[in-house]
Design a protein around this nucleic acid. Sequence first.
RNA 1: CGGGGCGUAGCGCAGCCUGGUAGCGCAUCUGGUUUGGGACCAGAAAGUCGGAAGUUCGAAUCUUCUCGCCCCGACCA
Length: 588
Amino acid sequence: MLMSQYFVKTLRDDPSEAEVTSHKLLLRAGFVRQLAAGIFINLPLAERSNTKIENIIREEIEAIGGLEMTMPVIHPADIWKETQRWYQIGGEMGRFKDRNNHDMVLAMTHEEVVAFTMRKEIRSYKQLPALIYHIQTKWRDDPRPRAGLIRVREFVMKDSYSLDATPEGLDKQYRNHYRAYFNIAHRCDLPVISVKSDTGMMGGSLAHEFMYLTPIGEDTLMICEKCGLSANRQIAVFSKKENPKEEAKPIEEVATPGATTIEALAKSLDIPAAKTAKVVFKVAAVKEEEEYVDKLVLAIVRGDMEVNETKLVNALEAKALRPAHDEEITAAGTVPGYASPIGLKGVITVVDDIIPAESNLVSGANKEGFHLLNVNYKRDYKADVVADIAMTRDGAACPQCEAPLVSFRGVEVGNIFQLGTRYSDSMDCKFLDKDGQWKPVIMGSYGIGVGRLLACIAEEHNDENGLCWPVSVAPYHLYLISIGEKGKEIAQRVYKELWQEGVEVLFDDRDESPGIKFKDADLIGLPLRLTISDRSLKKGGAELKFRKESGSTIIPIEELIQKIKEEKVRLEEDLAREVKEKTEELED
RNA sequence: CGGGGCGUAGCGCAGCCUGGUAGCGCAUCUGGUUUGGGACCAGAAAGUCGGAAGUUCGAAUCUUCUCGCCCCGACCA
């Protein structure tokens, strides 16, 4: 490509809409432009990098037996009704009607289409296992897109779907993807870690997320630096310490004016927060005879803990959760700040699993200004659900080794799910097994975001002057600058020859001052930069500089093509070697 | 859904409080001089001040409504 023909100008100033580094740089360097909140245009530079990322993904997925296909972006709602997700998913789903008034869905993911296809095609265990994938646009109407390309509404992802006859088969496909995803990230020179995650709207049993750790990440991960245990905070568990057991004492009402928070309560009674029961009200959409209805939920954790909403939703098997309004709480017969489960009717009570082991906790008295001492689970009240619903915090004890857990922020670039038969059951996707029995196909689904990878790579590889692309995903390998007439003449020849030799060159042939060209070279961030000018010629050739290094070398013109080719190959080999080392580490 | 901020030329911003002919820097176009880190001189072009309604003799400026974008929280493969 010739810079003189690129229709996009780099920006001197950070656009005011951009906050995070990758967003600023991708805008300034002319990779992307925004069309609307969470909807981006990929300009030619981004397109080239995306294509490279996609091809890395293709190679890794083909290597584990994946077959590429394309599934539509627009689906009839019928298949989403079959799996109930039409009803379960809220505003995140894009819905519209076609001209015949049929409900239609903008693809958020493709389990339904896979199941639809496979129930027509798969009849025998002999057709399994199978692995299909595609790279396709998704629409998820996120309530709050943010951080440029990190969190968008329309995006391209590679999603693969495994189909197996046995759980062992699924396990193998899952492990294959686990390794493949690390390979993909490593080949993009993006450090990621895997953590256990919530299955969310996907359903299924086991799930991992691949996280790029960065302070701008929107997920919080809990990691044990001692034993290596890691999980998304949404599902992270920790080892809870019970208070010393006490003999159950009789309930006693005490006046606690103004003590509407645990902190104030503990202070006024001079007891540790861990001797109180924290009551939190939420309204959950719970399934009741095929319909989702809003129910008031009373969740109890020990006073020194907090409620984890994801865990609570899972414990309730609810669709959604929101904080309860004060009116809803009062209507249930209690008072915000002084609530307790004792004597309350018409609410779903969920208690954290440490509560039954605790004795003589302080709880609200369901009237303004009073609390109850010595409340004991079972004797005084019972819950509809007992489950782990406590949030894991920094410093909480690791459930494996008791060391303190540490929290990190991260961006989820990929995830893998063991779906099991969630979709094959609801969509009747069955095969005839060896033993002559019809069985549901066992599915797995595996996603990795192309644009998100690009953004994370940009976030990881940059400096104060601009982007610094890894050679594997750089839109071009080399930024060629010519200064002056003589330099331009030689550069034009070099440009053609390098392309013939497999070196992708972006030639800045513009009639601009050298300063502008150097600034743009740094901003766009190709791994190699070659300058041909009167000055370099006087020194004996052309000047080669690596984006990530400060020095430069002069190369005689006659050796130029060969030398650059070598350097490009060397960069690729260096990266390949690192990938190999990381892969071996992973195998251990 | 709750809280906050911002919409003025392609980009970054001033002007608004205190109403009176819309400005600056960069970018763009023309001519000339320059050519190793976002050059210089001279000239030019470019804005429904996000939109609508209202107040007023007069609104970028005041009022109301509305749309969009950004941030925090909630939510979320």
